[in-house]
Simulated scan of single mutants.
Amino acid sequence: MIAYIKGNLTYIQDDSIIVEVQGLGYEIHCANPFAFQSFLNTEVIIHTYHYVREDSQMLYGFKNTDEKYLFTKLISVSGIGPKGALAILASVDVAGFAGAIEREDDKFLTSFPGIGKKTARQIILDLKGKLTGALSVSAETDDDTSGAHVPETQLAEAKEALQALGYTDREIKGVMPKLQQETINNTDEAVKKALALLIK
């Protein structure tokens, strides 16, 4: 198992990054490749999961061990593969997702592409009580924490609005990490903040 890769971040693609280590370029698939934009051409440490199947081998990369742990747990759930797990990680903070599972929030879980009610219930059944103790972040379930991050339903609605305005997935993924750190109270405000970040 390749636990992490330390090397020079040489290239960022729509769904992956390239990290060069002693002349070898490792392609690492990530939820938000453009979240690493500020580290381009510098040395980075990327936590990785080496996914091996009979017909393929792929490296998946994460900014921290919490994201990696959540990814490994998600792909253990029936009906969720690596692409589905990355799609979840692309638009949610780890603590928020763990909190939703503890609350058994079906509506929140089914807001992700490819997650229906059956899969949402399977996620809750398989992962409830197994995340919060293992993660270094606190999985708060209080709604009063909305000021710290954009609520996930508003984030999803903002992404849809940006797509309707003609922005590409690449452009939207590039601003999502910054948008998640903003203090936002409604979807309109989320869209306005995202547009401001896209114009910069």
Rank of each mutant, 00 (worst) to 15 (best):
R121T: 15
K128V: 09
Q122A: 13
T110W: 00
A120K: 14
K107V: 13
F112V: 03
S111I: 10
L125R: 12
D106W: 04
G129A: 09
F108W: 08
T119C: 06
L125M: 14
R121D: 15
I124E: 11
L127V: 04
E104R: 07
P113G: 04
D105I: 05
E102K: 12
G99C: 08
S111D: 11
A120F: 12
I123E: 03
D106I: 15
D105P: 02
I123G: 02
L125Y: 12
L127H: 01
E104P: 01
G116I: 11
G99T: 07
K130A: 04
I101E: 09
F112R: 04
E104A: 13
K128G: 08
D106A: 12
S111G: 14
K118C: 12
L109S: 05
E104Y: 03
R121E: 15
E102L: 03
R103I: 09
K130E: 10
D106C: 09
Q122V: 05
F108H: 14
R103P: 01
I123R: 04
A100K: 01
G99E: 04
K130P: 04
I115H: 05
R121S: 15
P113W: 06
T110R: 07
I123M: 11
K128F: 09
G99Y: 06
E102D: 13
A120G: 13
T110S: 02
A120Q: 13
I101N: 08
I115Q: 06
L125C: 09
K117V: 02
E104D: 08
F112G: 00
L127C: 01
K107G: 04
K117L: 00
K128L: 08
G114M: 09
P113E: 05
F112N: 02
E104C: 03
A120I: 13
I123C: 04
L125W: 06
K128E: 11
D106P: 03
K130C: 03
D106T: 15
R121H: 15
R103S: 10
G114S: 12
S111R: 13
I101M: 06
K118S: 14
G114C: 08
A120P: 14
D126H: 02
L125F: 13
L109V: 06
F108L: 15
E102I: 06
T119N: 05
I124H: 09
L127S: 01
T119S: 10
D106E: 14
Q122M: 12
E102R: 08
K117A: 06
R103E: 10
T110N: 00
S111C: 10
G116H: 10
T119H: 07
P113S: 08
L109I: 07
G99D: 08
I115C: 01
A120E: 10
D106K: 14
L127G: 02
I123V: 12
G114E: 13
L109T: 06
E102A: 13
I123S: 04
L125H: 14
G116A: 11
A100F: 01
D126M: 00
K128D: 10
K118P: 10
L127E: 02
I101V: 15
E104K: 11
K117S: 08
K107C: 03
R103W: 00
L109C: 07
